[in-house]
Design a protein around this nucleic acid. Structure first.
Lengths: 143, 143
DNA sequence: CTATTTCCTACTTTGTCAATAGGAAAATGA
DNA sequence: TCATTTTCCTATTGACAAAGTAGGAAATAG
């Protein structure tokens, strides 16, 4: 029941790009230093984001990544959809899953479907801009 | 991001006990046949539920399991807390996790904490009695 | 005493996540 | 042109938990 590092790293990188990439391309090297993430691992994640059109990558010297839209135009759900294998809370709700043979007499299915809706709605309601807010109080670990 | 079979099976078994166990003990054999779950695997799950005091087990002939309370007195969250290793949506929110060194400058942490709250609230709001409702329409796979 | 059932411990298998490795392709600037 | 920097691509490894199996011990009813 946990979001993988792929999704979590992707979100942090998107926020990092939003905060530091006002104008030009930011090389991964700078991001990994700030975010403490393995560069090689992050390369794979960025490739996914780039292929999905969420970021733009530039090769070579002076290259790196930058956002394609304003931060408030990125829903968190979009980013997780690309980087996470699934957001479905149970196997039978994964896209492409073959219907469970108990489907229409499964007493728990309606609850899972509802949870799925709640989670998707949750991630739809956040944008990268929302994540950029720096609020020490709100961010306090101990709450 | 998925609830494991342990938790899912446990919920189905609890509902099964609620529906079939009006009076006496129900042997696992009967449950596994109805629910299509490996008996040996289920034994381990039931042991957890029993140890947590959520069900009562009786040895020997005529034995089996039965609920200890009325179905509407079981929150889904209780059952998942026992059978699931964690419900936290990210590693840093697991109980006993050492605080992430980025904690107070992590831009995504507040969102994860909020999601955690939403999910816990969700599971708190369902009881076994709620799951017992049989509504063909609501249960329809294709929605 | 026998059949039935929970209970307990250990093992195997499987699959996915996380990360590493090595280099190819592209772009820049000197 | 050439060295450097960077993304991009394809495998491979390692770690770990989930899912299920196996074998039998303890308890209970009849």
């Amino acid at each position: 029941m946990t979001v993988s590092t792929r999704g979590r790293y992707a979100l942090r990188v998107m926020v990092d790009l939003a905060e530091h990439g006002g104008e030009g391309f930011i090389p991964l090297k700078a991001i990994t230093e700030r975010q403490n993430i393995s560069q090689k691992y992050l390369e794979g994640i960025m490739a996914s984001l780039s292929k999905a059109g969420l970021v733009e990558g530039a090769h070579g010297k002076g290259g790196g990544y930058r956002l394609c839209r304003e931060p408030d135009k990125y829903k968190v759900s979009e980013i997780l959809a690309v980087t996470e294998s699934t957001l479905a809370p149970v196997a039978c709700l994964k896209s492409g899953a073959e219907p469970c043979e108990l489907a229409d007499r499964c007493r728990t299915f309606p609850m899972w479907r509802e949870l799925n809706r709640v989670i998707n709605e949750f991630f739809d309601s956040y944008t990268i801009a929302d994540l950029m807010v720096k609020d020490e109080e709100y961010n306090n670990w101990i709450i």
